[in-house]
Design a binder for these strands. Sequence first.
DNA 1: TTGTCCATTTATGTATACATATTGCACCCA
DNA 2: TGGGTGCAATATGTATACATAAATGGACAA
Lengths: 250, 250
Amino acid sequence: MSERDPERSMSQTVRAQLALRDMILSGRLRPGERISELQAVEITGVSRTPVRLALVRLEDEGLLQAIPSGGFMVKAFTERDILDSIELRGTLEGLAARFAAERGASARSLEPLKECLADLDQLVRQDPVSVEAFSAYVTMNARFHALLTELSASPPLIRQIDRVSALPFASPSGFVMAQSALPEAHQILLIGQDHHRIVVDAIENREGARAEAVMREHSRLAARNLRLVLRNRTHLDLLPALALLKSSAE
Amino acid sequence: MSERDPERSMSQTVRAQLALRDMILSGRLRPGERISELQAVEITGVSRTPVRLALVRLEDEGLLQAIPSGGFMVKAFTERDILDSIELRGTLEGLAARFAAERGASARSLEPLKECLADLDQLVRQDPVSVEAFSAYVTMNARFHALLTELSASPPLIRQIDRVSALPFASPSGFVMAQSALPEAHQILLIGQDHHRIVVDAIENREGARAEAVMREHSRLAARNLRLVLRNRTHLDLLPALALLKSSAE
DNA sequence: TTGTCCATTTATGTATACATATTGCACCCA
DNA sequence: TGGGTGCAATATGTATACATAAATGGACAA
């Protein structure tokens, strides 16, 4: 009875949204496939009204695409689309870092970020990095990026970054897990952590341009990971989000 | 009968969305004010289902804010929010210009942009600029920015720029009309047009960094206009979108 | 007079019935 | 056999009734 509590506590709309998102990201609904409301009702077990709301929300989340004549289909992404989304996130996070630097983030507000940095250092220091450490890194890395975004103190920018990061393959931690299976893993992790260190330093010293440039470059590590994984094609299973890739002949 | 055609041709959802958006931007619904579904039903004349859809759409358009306990309220913006939104748009348009330059926009695809540039030149050349010319400039300017965005050939970026520009005060032409009443009007117009010229030149010569920098600076003209208008406070009527400004003691 | 609790009212969340538009298939005609 | 037309099936769009949760106001007690 207690195990049903979390499910009971949320609205039907949210439940439908989660169920459908899961179906899409896991690849059970293929890119380009039309997803009718009735079908969605069967999948989620809720009625058409909340299902429709969930579909609209998934559309502006970027996972679905509206069909001109009505209804929705699962969006398909090219490799280029994904790379552009990563560059886009990098650009926005760069702007956030610049804002943080220019507006003089207080020493107190920088404290959580520094703590997060130290925690990441702990995890990265291991060699080889255990799978658990990788998993912990993913969580902590997401926290670092979230804290950095907040430091911009700009609601419109924060909102926009959140929207871009909603696409799983564009999120800061989207490709970290893939690294755990790549030979270049540890080195890339170390480089990424160095970026983290530099951006905090730049913000502290009010070096806006430097902070911005570093965050932009930082996002390109994710692009590098993506390319490595796609060329190897051995560890695609670690990246369920790639189910949305167009003509994925997996 | 024929005059009702355009109204009849669109869905109730779209109609409700337009009606509510108009109410918000015209200031008849004040920032922070809760807007209940029943109230929206009375305003729009359609039933709750499409009204609700419209409210959700206006939320991710950025005009409404969800209330945690349910329902929506009209979003309030600070002057800083607006300035940040403009900087955000400039950053994204800068990225678009860089993409266009780096990816080698073809001479053929640059053609419409150059035509648009020439048209703008025509309009700017007048001194003083007539009100009709200003109005034409607004239209043509919007077209220029749209074409430039398209040149990036990046669907994710285009999507994001469209979302930012949906906020009326963040759109490329949001503050042009205000210029028509400012003494600095003509000069700012000329500078803006020079930016246009430079960015086309930079794209043509594959100078990505230059194209990006110019578009960023270009957006700051809008920021300048905003500050001028707010300091003068004489021509606020030209900018209905400012109804969303927090504590606007107009 | 003020604070708290309960009742009432009004809001949103959900389901479903009905209206209308779109799509696809079959059949007929050229 | 190819193409077009029309009907049937199925999709989305809309309205509304019902369920449930939140907000409000009044009454009573401290």
